[in-house]
Amino acid sequence: MSTRQTARPFATADARTSNGALDMPEPDHRLDRIAEHPIFKTLVHERTRFSWILTGLMLFVYFGFIGLIAFDKALLATKVGGTASLGFYMGMFVIVFAFLLTGIYVARANTRYDRLSAELVRSLAK
């Protein structure tokens, strides 16, 4: 069987093959039902907010690290304990932090967002 058809469920997706034609897509009622559905709105609102917060944290931590390297080398050279410098611990922290952030996102997505998605699909099937 072809996967081409399954890839284009909505009228809009079909309209994209007719280049330059001026036909507006047929309104799709199933689509409107989803877009206006309260569960869909909750899901999108929560997930979008959460992923932008995490993105912001990652940008802050990484560019903070790069910024310190650029502007305050002396601070990073400070010894912590024996030989290892503060910069070394910060670099390791950036690596571990990146991994933890992906873990936090996946944990939340696997529980909260997947449950909302499943609820949405169930209520649409009614």
Binding site: P9, L31, I34, F40, V121
Partner: peptide, 8 residues
């Protein structure tokens, strides 16, 4: 809708 839910 499709990018957020995967429906379709």
């Amino acid at each position: 809708v499709r990018s957020e839910t995967g429906i379709g």
